[in-house]
């Protein structure tokens, strides 16, 4: 194991060569987006499905 991997093991994506500053930027941005995901998740019905998108596109196609 390289010194870099030692230093970042336990970090997200420890296999990527990133500076500490880049990691902090990435974490901060992911946290911002996570806040939105959390808010959306609590409003989303249990039955919401990844295929809903294609179904709605086809069902609402302009005639």
């Amino acid at each position: 194991m390289s010194q870099r991997q030692d230093q970042t093991s336990g970090e997200p994506a420890s296999y990527l060569e990133m500076t500490k500053e880049q990691r902090e930027n990435a974490k901060a941005h992911a946290a911002l987006l996570s806040g939105t995901a959390a808010r959306v998740a609590v409003e989303l019905p249990l039955t919401a499905d990844v295929d809903d998108f294609r179904r709605v596109l086809a069902a609402r196609a302009a005639r």
Binding site: A41, V50, D51, D52, F53, R55, R60
Partner: peptide, 22 residues
């Protein structure tokens, strides 16, 4: 690289919500 920091659950919430928002 940023993409590796997004939790899988958040990604799936976004893909599951897509039909609802559309």
């Amino acid at each position: 690289e940023f993409g590796h920091f997004i939790p899988a659950v958040d990604h799936l919430v976004a893909t599951r919500a897509r039909g609802t928002y559309l």
